[in-house]
Design a binder for these strands. Structure first.
Lengths: 235, 235
DNA sequence: GAGACTAGGTGTACTGTGTACACCTGTCAA
DNA sequence: TTGACAGGTGTACACAGTACACCTAGTCTC
């Protein structure tokens, strides 16, 4: 008589669907329970708590990332793997925020990380260089970077237009960029004028190309002088 | 008779000190009020709400970033400015999280952004290239990147050591990196084995060096083919 | 001085959150 | 038949942010 009985699986799936539709902030234990036609505390039989719920959701998302077929070229393989990760994470907007908020790694995250690392090492990069390039990738390895410009200037409604008009005077350089982007993009605002996908790939390629150069130069991390890889120079 | 009367200034300062000491999660309107020997609602006469409080705190932190003295070399200027930002943000650990959670820009953020942009443009980089390089920097421009490896594997206490022992088998590539880092660093864990500052500067330099190369090549963004700057090649 | 205005601290109360804990109930093994 | 147990229920608590009505002390004007 019970409606399709609960399970961790079903809890996670419903939570994800809800977060997809209503946003991660709208997802509370109570709402989720309601969504499942169940009393809030019922969830705790399948999930240790909210933290565990979020961990579980991330686990599912990361598990959805499909591996790339090896081409033999590490750079291309890494590129495709990360763009594939991006596709997955973009389907679930909330995962960016949640992933960032997590402080411990889940098994699926470790798997992804390890396989990505493997692409570099198997491609011939030194362990040393691979390590630092992974750091350089940062969260980009998950398929997103901080879309900083997505943050529009303060929208106090009142001061907004004022600030917008004053922008060229107060922030001439930002105005230049905004206008250039507006020329190629949709409208004049700082954010939506940018092509997220393009920006992402640009940044990704800067890092991968840098890695390739350092690799070709047999770069090795100095005995921690903290001066970085300052030996890349054009020509 | 009133103890040193409240002010937005004092509210923000106290909030920052509290967050510095107790962490951002411990900071609630009620705790903050208590800290100021005042009833919670008193804060709302100086701050519109919690969001505004956080915005204000960020405003102060970002305002603390000191400008660099121009050397005439854009790359070095940018580098120093960002490392200076890093120094400031590192003093207030919580600012990383808060900055990321903000969805709108505050005036101080716009100022910083504009001045950073100016360093590129005044250095001779095209507006186009500057734009994309800013994106490539991402949050690194604020002095932090996602310290991904800071997240240790699940610490279930029980499964932790098990997982640690099994790591070389299940995640051979991560194990390689961990061992290499342990050799140079402190202990064998994935996180603390890394020198945060070094990693940060490495990543920063990869991006800046990439920018320099593209600049020297008179790079220009293709008519949005979304294929990125794939024309950097060693030799 | 007298009254009004006001900036700013107070008190109470409401909604929403995560979750501890005791409880009930249906299923299945012995 | 029994009784263990997996899993859904109900109540209750502490904590969050904040709306709203209130009080109070200082200042400004006549």
């Amino acid at each position: 008589m019970r409606r399709a009985t609960l399970s961790r699986e079903r809890v996670l799936q419903t939570a994800m669907a809800y977060a997809d539709a209503q946003g991660i902030d709208a997802l509370s234990m109570r709402r989720l329970a309601q969504e499942l036609d169940v009393v809030p505390m019922a969830l705790y039989k399948h999930v240790a708590g909210k933290e565990d719920l979020l961990d579980g959701m991330i686990e599912v998302v990361v598990g959805e990332i499909i591996g790339a077929t090896a081409t033999g070229f590490w750079k291309q393989d890494v590129r495709e793997r990360i763009l594939s990760a991006r596709k997955t994470l973009v389907r679930h907007q909330w995962s960016r925020t949640v992933l960032e908020s997590r402080s411990a790694m889940t098994p699926a995250m470790l798997d992804y990380l390890d396989s990505l690392t493997g692409l570099f090492i198997d491609g011939g990069l030194s362990v040393d260089l691979t390590h630092h390039v992974m750091h350089a990738l940062g969260n980009r390895m998950w398929g997103f970077s901080q879309e900083l410009f997505a943050a529009t200037p303060r929208s106090d409604t009142s001061s907004f237009t004022a600030q917008r008009d004053a922008l060229p005077r107060q922030h001439p350089h930002l105005a230049q960029i905004a206008m250039a982007a507006a020329h190629a993009g949709s409208d004049a605002r700082l954010g939506p004028g940018c092509d997220d996908q393009f920006e992402f790939e640009f940044a990704l390629d800067v890092v991968l190309d840098g890695a390739e150069i350092l690799h070709a130069q047999h770069w090795t991390s100095a005995p921690r002088t903290s001066s970085g890889p300052r030996d890349i120079r054009p020509r």
